[in-house]
């Protein structure tokens, strides 16, 4: 777990104020309390991604929720697909893979 101060210190160009705004908009989540949020590794990676989308790839703030929403759906779908594949027995998986290649 990482404090908000450590996250901002590790990411040049990110102010605590901005990160608190992102938290309030639910673009990123944290454990802990509202006053002292505690960031897991996945949260820090997400903060870094949002910062990079915004400052380097020029995705404007009004567009960010759209991009994040689509990304979240993409990752959720991938997770579901993996679950489906994991639930299949090996022979079924192989048959499926074979029929998809065709």
């Amino acid at each position: 777990m990482t404090t908000i101060q450590s996250v901002c210190a590790a990411l040049p160009g990110l102010s605590e104020e901005t990160l608190r705004r992102w938290l309030a908009q639910d673009w990123v989540r944290a454990d802990g309390t509202a006053g002292q949020p505690a960031f897991a590794e996945i949260d820090v990676a997400r903060v870094r991604l949002i910062l990079e989308l915004h400052t380097e790839l020029e995705v404007e703030e009004p567009t960010l929720p759209l991009v994040l929403s689509l990304l979240d759906q993409l990752y959720a779908t991938r997770a579901q697909l993996r679950l489906v594949l994991d639930s299949l027995d090996a022979p079924v998986r192989e048959a499926l893979a074979e029929s998809l290649v065709r």
């Binding site: 989540r29 996945i42 949260d43 997400r46 929403s69 979240d72 990752y75 959720a76 997770a79 679950l83």
Partner: peptide, 10 residues
């Protein structure tokens, strides 16, 4: 992965 999944959790 479930942390940011919309709707149904992964």
């Amino acid at each position: 992965s479930g942390r940011y999944s919309p709707g149904f959790g992964g």
